[in-house]
Amino acid sequence: MKKLKIVLITIILSFNSCIDEDIINDSVPEEVRIISSFTTLKVGEMATLEASFFNNIGEIEDNSFIWSSSNPSVLSIDATTSSISANVEGTAIITVKAIGKTGDLTDSQTIEVVADNSINIDTPKKGTFSKTTSYKAAGDFEITKTSNGIKIELASNYVADTSLPGFALFLTNNPNSLANALQIDAYDDADGAHYTGAFTYNIENVGLNDYKYLVQWCRPFSILTGKALIIDK
């Protein structure tokens, strides 16, 4: 009987059934990004630009910014407060600089100063999905600003793999992690997930430049299956 107990205990203990840790390589390049999305100003108008610093895991982190204008006579800017003044008609490139752990980081935005500000354009965004596993992921999309957020329009060639368990779609600044990601569609939300063809998502309280990627995930099993970089259209 003693031998039997020893054999039993040995068998049970020899199997590892404890929750361990998977170490995820969630590193992304540091980035400074101009969040304000307007690209035109009326002569005489003033505005304040906003920027964010994203650290090496894509999280917003406090940092100091230094602003400059390529053409101060057209568009002048306070180097620290980012307050800009539209002086005369023309075009200027506004640049913001921050210092990250890897060195100087910059981002730029071209702003046109016009006599009549009736056309205030926020540059739309676009992207194309590519698959990151053997599961299907493809298709184009556009993102435009709305009165209270953004609108993501998936094109008719959009594809997410219908065999994926726990499919979900996210906006994120780090495609390797769902930390700080914004879920915009999922298999378990009220209307289920959209897998194929054209579809529109209206998302409130999100800016055009708040996120850098649109990603498809198999959420329960933490599998990134599709990734799209969001770029200017």
Partner: peptide
């Protein structure tokens, strides 16, 4: 017993 490992950031 069904279990899944914790997903841990390799950076932080």
């Amino acid at each position: 017993r069904i279990y899944q490992n914790a997903q841990v950031s390799g950076i932080t």
